[in-house]
Amino acid sequence: MKEKKSIGTFYIPMIFFLVTVLFPFAWTFLTSLKKKNEMFAQEFRFLPAAPTLDSYRELFEKTDFFSNMWNSLVVSFATVLIAGIVSFMAGYALSRYRFRMRNALMYFFLLLYLVPSTLLLIPLYTIFNKMGILHTQLCLIVAYSTYSIPYSVWLTTGFINQVPFELEEAAALDGCSLAQRMFRIVLPLLRPALVASCSFIFITSWNEYTYANMFTNKASRTVTVALSNFMSQYNIRWDLITAGGIVVVIPVVIMFVFVQKDLIAGLTAGGVKG
């Protein structure tokens, strides 16, 4: 399809968007390469005069950033595992069976997705406290799984809808059980889609801050909390913030670029229909 693309309505807005999106990252990266005295120099310079990795060195050698990353990694992986399996099962049921309340359930999951996290914050704190798991990774895993399930049920249902049921019928005639059909037929066919939705669960868990800030302590702290803690009232460590920010965002962006096509397909397929 050939279309006219004028400078005023196409190229200028596109460049505007690209610059706006990339500028904060570029500026953060450039700052992270600067020496500390240059960051806070009177005379402003855009590019670092002598690029250095000092900020990154300090980040990994003098702070707990490695263990923060490890905590985030553990929590995010566990969340992917739990939410992934649970919502694959639920998504399969919602896609393959017609029963009363099915549509109501789909809406129920959609609505839960929108329950304010601040409403749950306080009760969850008291519950986790009573259970004795406050300040452990477990309470974040529980909270994140719950928050991912509604969304990923929605996604997975849409994905499974696209796998023809006839394949399973044929397998059932050959004596395949339900579990065999789910895991040997549907699952392999869904692999790219599931990779996408699991990556998204991973990304949202990795990025979460509201709960993590409330439910963790020094030992279980995650990267986002660590990052914001570099900004205390009296001493804002822009060197550590910028370096840490780049370290935190890189894995997420790489992951996203790989899965974005499948993710968007699932997101916009509209699992809620029919």
């Binding site: 968007f17 690209l18 999106v21 990339l22 904060p24 990252f25 500026w27 953060t28 700052t31 990304i203 990795w206 990025n207 801050y209 986002t224 990052l227 914001s228 900004m231 822009w238 913030i241 910028t242 920010g245 935190v248 965002v249 997420v252 962006v253 996203f256 670029v257 974005q260």
Partner: peptide
């Protein structure tokens, strides 16, 4: 791909970047 990146950037980092 590029214009979608803010979507997967942690809000904490977004806040800190703009604060800087």
């Amino acid at each position: 791909s590029v214009v979608l990146i803010p979507w997967v950037t942690p809000c904490v980092l977004i806040s800190l970047m703009w604060a800087w």
